[in-house]
Amino acid sequence: MKFDGRTFEIQIVSDIVRDGMCLEAWETSEGRSVQVAEVFYSDISERLAFTAYEKSLPLGLVENMCRTAQERLVPETELTGGN
């Protein structure tokens, strides 16, 4: 996907060391890929955390990552109806 003329790949990965799931953003340019940001969901704390590995990331990328992480990384809670 492109933001501000820059090309990024987004991938979801399992992180067994930190006990959670991660949404990673990699910038691709001239045949290289460099990780520039991540959103991590911790199964222990049940919280999301955003980390940027580079300054001045496009706001559209950050917004897209946060929205996607909330939709794809956070488990849905099952309603039992009180039974």
Rank of each mutant, 00 (worst) to 15 (best):
R47D: 11
S45R: 06
A52V: 11
S42G: 15
Y53A: 10
V34I: 12
S29T: 07
L23K: 00
T7H: 08
L23Y: 00
E54H: 12
V39T: 05
E54R: 15
Q35I: 14
G82L: 12
G60H: 13
E71N: 07
T68A: 04
E71W: 04
T68L: 04
M21W: 04
D4T: 13
E78H: 14
E38Y: 01
T80I: 11
L48G: 02
E78L: 15
G20R: 01
S33E: 09
L23H: 00
V74F: 02
R47V: 08
G60K: 14
V34Q: 05
A52I: 09
V13G: 07
N64V: 15
A25F: 08
R6W: 12
K2H: 10
E63P: 00
A52F: 07
V36L: 09
A37R: 02
D43A: 10
G82W: 10
T28M: 06
G82V: 09
T80M: 11
R72V: 07
D15K: 00
G5N: 10
N83M: 12
E24N: 13
S33Q: 08
D4N: 15
A37W: 03
P58I: 13
G5S: 05
A37K: 03
R72Q: 14
D19Q: 07
V17P: 00
V17C: 03
N83L: 13
L73M: 08
A69F: 05
T7E: 09
T80E: 11
G20W: 00
G5C: 06
G81N: 07
N64W: 15
N83D: 09
I12E: 04
